[in-house]
């Protein structure tokens, strides 16, 4: 066991240093909020002109106070996905029969996939009320088709309606939704990505936090479908790629 000795050494060092730092009081947790954090916590739900209309400070910062940051982050993420779509622009041979995993794995996958879909929807759609949001929900959503892809086959996913083309279409619809929600305030005399009062805080007596719920839903679709598209491509074995004739 060549690896045990260095591991024990590292562990001992970490524990000793952590103990020394903790007892000497070099590093201590802050006991009170910083002014900036206090501002966001107080104003995110009820803050007049500064309100985002949501009790969830993280989502408020992500899609309202620092909305442009998230918008550009999203565009970087989708440029990466466009890059991988380009890399895989081969023709693919039709496969008649693919190998599936055992009955136990398939049964568990059937149950787990449905549960993951429900949980991801709840993470994304309650993103403006409880921890969570579009990106978190979308990445959880992408795990469900991934499990089906591994336990069953690529073919089943495609015949049940989630083909590569459809995943890309859903992803593009999500992106369009984000863009339209960001640009809509401009046409109504507001600023770009403005939230309240352009978007209503309540819809049918439900707290929807203005534009936050729209951003969350569209990001959910875009991230989930984007990851799914990449996985649909990356799961193709190399031997099924066909060189295009020149």
């Amino acid at each position: 066991m060549k690896r045990t000795l260095p591991l024990l050494l590292i562990l001992a060092l970490v524990v000793v240093f952590a103990y020394l730092f903790a007892t000497k009081g070099v590093i201590s947790a802050p006991t009170e909020l910083r002014p900036l954090g206090k501002f966001y916590l107080e104003k995110c739900m009820i803050g007049g002109d500064f309100a985002a209309g949501s009790p969830e400070a993280v989502t408020s910062i992500l899609w309202d106070y620092r909305g442009l940051d998230t918008l550009f982050e999203t565009s970087v993420f989708f440029l990466a996905i466009i890059g991988s779509l380009m890399l895989f622009s081969f023709k693919v041979k039709e496969v008649v029969r693919e190998q599936e995993l055992t009955l136990v794995v398939r049964s568990v996958t059937k149950i787990a996939a449905v549960m993951i879909l429900a949980v991801s929807a709840s993470i994304a759609l309650h993103g403006h009320l409880t921890p969570g949001g579009g990106f978190q929900g979308g990445s959880a959503l992408a795990v469900a088709p991934l499990l089906v892809l591994v336990a069953f086959s690529r073919k089943i996913l495609e015949t049940s309606g989630l083909s590569l083309k459809r995943a890309i279409v859903i992803r593009s619809l999500g992106l369009m939704g984000i863009l339209l929600t960001a640009l809509l305030p401009l046409t109504l005399g507001g600023y770009i990505m403005q939230n309240l009062p352009i978007f209503p805080k309540y819809i049918a007596d439900q707290l929807t936090s203005g534009s936050l719920i729209f951003y969350n839903v569209f990001e959910y679709l875009a991230v989930g479908a984007g990851f799914t598209a990449v996985f649909l491509l990356i799961s193709i074995p190399e031997k099924n790629f066909v060189e295009e004739e020149k």
Binding site: P131, A142, F231
Partner: peptide, 26 residues
């Protein structure tokens, strides 16, 4: 940091592992 947990679990356990396993197969 529950917001981080929700994204981190899905990505680091599900998506990241699956991506690496696909790459190892290739």
């Amino acid at each position: 940091a529950p917001d981080i947990v929700l994204a981190y679990v899905a990505i680091s356990v599900g998506i990241y592992s699956a991506l690496l396993i696909f790459l190892i197969r290739k």
